[in-house]
Every structure is written in structure tokens, then in C-alpha cells.
Design a protein around this nucleic acid. Structure first.
Lengths: 115, 115
DNA sequence: CTCGTATCTGGAGCGCGCTCCAGGTCAAGA
DNA sequence: TCTTGACCTGGAGCGCGCTCCAGATACGAG
């Protein structure tokens, strides 16, 4: 399996090495495989997963949310609450979109007023 | 002019008294008028403005952004950059909406997969 | 006037999400 | 072999946005 060094992983995901280690400590990614010498070796799957985490972070989900999300999506988890949890998260994101729309409406009004 | 005590202002805006004072210190609201004894007296305009600030905070704008926003909207400001600034903020909010949509798409995919 | 509650100020403390640092290890090139 | 630079760990530090606290003052009800 072809793997990649920490600095390359950082370059390719846009996430700093420190943050990658932080995410791993927090259980959001990995655990990442190690070389005989103890260095991390990121697989393509790892990079993909980091992309998912980044996507959710950019959407404003907190570390604790993501930890729960990860735990739920890891294959070994009993699937019972999965869909409910996912729907709940989706609804929360919709709330955030609504808040953004309200703010944008205010801005539009001000823009119209000053134009 | 009818005014309102700090605790009433907090109740009506949903913002804690401490946070109201914090916002005032940071220049996001007020300065709030004082009674002879030194207590704050919030006018209806103050409450309305607090609502605006809250709206933007909920949309994820930072304190520094809001300070700039407030400075720009306060009547005495030269109007030259106003509209540009507002449009810029609007674009930033649109970016955030886009990030949320990406995350929601991922969730939808997972929901479909597990349903 | 007294009591109790609300409010005042300045400043400390906190949770989050990184970010940085010291001191040491590993590994590729000259 | 020696040097150089990427990487390791554990832990400290930081900026943000509150939130809480101590000690003092204001003020309405009885």
C-alpha cells in the first residue's frame, strides 16, 4: 500500500501537521499506521477521511460532534442510531444556514439602503 | 423615552447581562445611557441594535468583524467604503453557506447509504 | 431606616481549537 | 561517518468569546 509522509499529508489536505496530530489524539482520524522507526504513514484512505473531517470542521461542527460522528461511522458500531444521528446533524446544519440567511437579509437591506 | 433595566434587556434579547456589558466594552453596542445612580438604561433602539448584533453573531461573524461593521454603520462615518464592505461580508457569508451545503451533501449521502 | 435584590467595576477563569516549543529520534545524502 | 532536516512526544501557550467573582453601590418594598 502506498503511503505518504506527514508533511505530504499536510500539503495534500491543507491541514497542518500539528493539527493532524491533534485530530488523531482526539480520535477524529486514524490511528495512523507507523513505520518501523515510528513515523506516521498516511494512506489514501486516511487522506480521504481527513478531507471529510475538514469538510465538517469548515461547516462549523465541533471536535466533540466529529468524534461522535466518527465513532458512529466506524464500521464496528451498532447501526441503530446512525440515521437518526445523521438526520439530527443535518437539521442542525440547516439551522445554521437559516441563521446565515437572516444575516444576509440584513446585509441586503443595508446594501440597498446605501446604494 | 421609555427605557429598560439590564435584566429586562437580557430577557428581551436573549443575551446575558455579562455579555451585554462585554459587547458594550467591545464597542458593539451603546454606549448605553446611565441613570443618575450609574445603572444602565436600555432604549428600544438599543434593544433593536442588540438584535442586529445577535443576528450577525449567530451567523458566525467575529467580534472584530462586528466592531468594524458597527463603526461603518454609525451615522457619522464617511460612506465611501460602506457598500463595498457590506458586499464583502455578504460574500463571506455565502462562502459559509457553501461550506454548510457541502457538509450537508456528505450527510445526505451517508443517510442514503444507511437507510 | 433597613433589608434584600439588582447592578456596578475590574479582573480572573474557562472551554475550544489549535499552535508552538524543547528535547530527543530517525533517516537520507555527501 | 557526519550532517541535516523531517518527525517524534508531552506539555505549555494563545486568541476568542464569553462567564464568573469579589467587593462596593443603588434602590424599591416594608
Amino acid at each position: 500500500m502506498t503511503t505518504v509522509t506527514p508533511s505530504t499529508a499536510a500539503d495534500r489536505t491543507g491541514v497542518s501537521i500539528d493539527t493532524l496530530r491533534y485530530y488523531e489524539r482526539e480520535g477524529l482520524i486514524g490511528p495512523i499506521r507507523r513505520s518501523p522507526g515510528g513515523r506516521r504513514e498516511y494512506t489514501e484512505e486516511d487522506l480521504f477521511w481527513i478531507g471529510l473531517v475538514t469538510c465538517f470542521r469548515e461547516a462549523g461542527l465541533g471536535i466533540a460532534d466529529l468524534r461522535e460522528f466518527v465513532a458512529l461511522l466506524r464500521a464496528d458500531h451498532p447501526p441503530q442510531n446512525r440515521v437518526a444521528f445523521l438526520r439530527e446533524r443535518r437539521a442542525a446544519l440547516e439551522q445554521r444556514v437559516a441563521a446565515l440567511r437572516r444575516a444576509m437579509d440584513v446585509l441586503d437591506e443595508k446594501i440597498a439602503y446605501y446604494s
